[in-house]
Amino acid sequence: MRPSSKSLAICLLALALGAPAHAVGVRVEVVGSVEYSVIQGGLSGVKAGDRAVMSFNLDSDNYLNSENFPTRGYRIDLGSFDLSIGGVHMQLDMPQAGSGDALFVLRDNDPEVDGFFLSLGPDDRVPLSLHVPGLEPEHELEFGRTFSVNTALHSLNILDAVGVYGFENMSSYQWTMGRFGNYGLEVGYEGISISAVPEPTTQALFGLGALALLGIARWSRQGSLAGSMALAPSVPEYQR
């Protein structure tokens, strides 16, 4: 026996409402402006004041906890990474050296300090590797931003860190590119945003839920209209 349209709509609505409410995908974006650059190749035309934007995605369930410090590193989706310096786009090397993991690390009360940094491990800041267009040598990318208080972050769960962070309570930052610890480019930090992105399956379920609500409403209207027609008195056909 085939289910009625109303039954199907109610089932779809129940599925949507029963889906997990929390988002697993996370989008991180850091913005700033170039303070100086002497790197050549594709960056030869970059000058002070040019815009810098770094963005990438990660999964809130995909992380490494430090065994030594109150830090947690979330694995960056390397395919989503983009670093734009003065309009020149660069990606991280895939894979990275060592473990191949590039991490976005959270510090929570470490000690008495909160913050974010990029690294190859969850303990200490280790440069990530990338290549500048037009240049053969590997370059090092470093980024970190710390707070002067231990109340900026509330846990090592990145979903608790969703928000926008400008200069408030900032104790230090570093956003550089170079080789062997020599910085050829430095960016002045302006802000970082961390936002939760619903999973495609969750979005699809809520889309089905919306369709279910529409179907139930349409079914109700049709039912009401049919009832009205059934109760309406018959009217003789107009005669010429």
Rank of each mutant, 00 (worst) to 15 (best):
R72G: 10
F69I: 12
S80M: 06
L64K: 10
D77A: 15
T71K: 10
F81H: 09
E67H: 11
R72N: 04
Y36L: 05
S84I: 04
Y74L: 06
G45R: 04
D50V: 08
V53H: 03
E35L: 13
G79K: 13
L78Y: 05
G45M: 05
A48I: 05
S44H: 09
S84H: 00
N62W: 06
G49T: 10
R75Y: 05
P70S: 15
S33F: 03
D61Y: 09
G73F: 00
G79E: 12
F56H: 03
G42K: 01
Q40V: 09
P70T: 15
E67R: 11
D77M: 09
I39D: 00
V53D: 01
D77K: 14
D50T: 10
V53G: 01
N62L: 11
K47W: 04
Y63S: 14
I39Y: 00
G41T: 11
D77W: 03
S44R: 13
F69A: 10
S44W: 05
R75W: 06
V46Y: 01
D50S: 15
V53L: 09
F81C: 08
G49W: 04
Q40I: 06
D59G: 07
I76R: 01
T71P: 03
D82V: 13
S33L: 07
D61C: 13
L83T: 02
A52H: 01
S37Q: 07
L78S: 15
Q40N: 11
Q40S: 14
I76L: 10
I39C: 07
P70M: 13
M54P: 04
D59R: 13
L83N: 00
R72C: 05
T71S: 14
D50K: 07
S66G: 06
L83H: 00
S33C: 07
L78T: 13
Q40F: 03
L64V: 12
E67M: 11
N65A: 14
G73K: 00
I39H: 02
A52G: 10
V53Q: 03
S44I: 10
F81T: 01
G79D: 14
L58R: 02
S37D: 09
S44P: 02
F81P: 00
N57H: 13
A52C: 11
L83C: 02
V46H: 05
S55R: 15
L83Q: 02
S55F: 01
L64C: 08
M54T: 12
R72M: 09
L78G: 12
V38E: 14
N68M: 08
G73D: 06
G79Y: 05
R51L: 11
G32Y: 00
R72W: 08
Y74M: 06
D50H: 12
N65F: 07
R51F: 05
L64P: 03
Y36A: 09
M54Y: 10
G42L: 01
S33M: 06
V53M: 02
F81Q: 09
R51E: 14
V34D: 00
F69E: 07
A48R: 15
L64Q: 11
L58Q: 04
P70G: 10
S44G: 06
S55Y: 06
E67P: 06
S44E: 12
N57W: 07
S33E: 12
S84T: 12
F69D: 07
Y63Q: 03
V31I: 11
A48Q: 13
G45K: 12
S66L: 03
S80K: 08
S60N: 13
L64M: 11
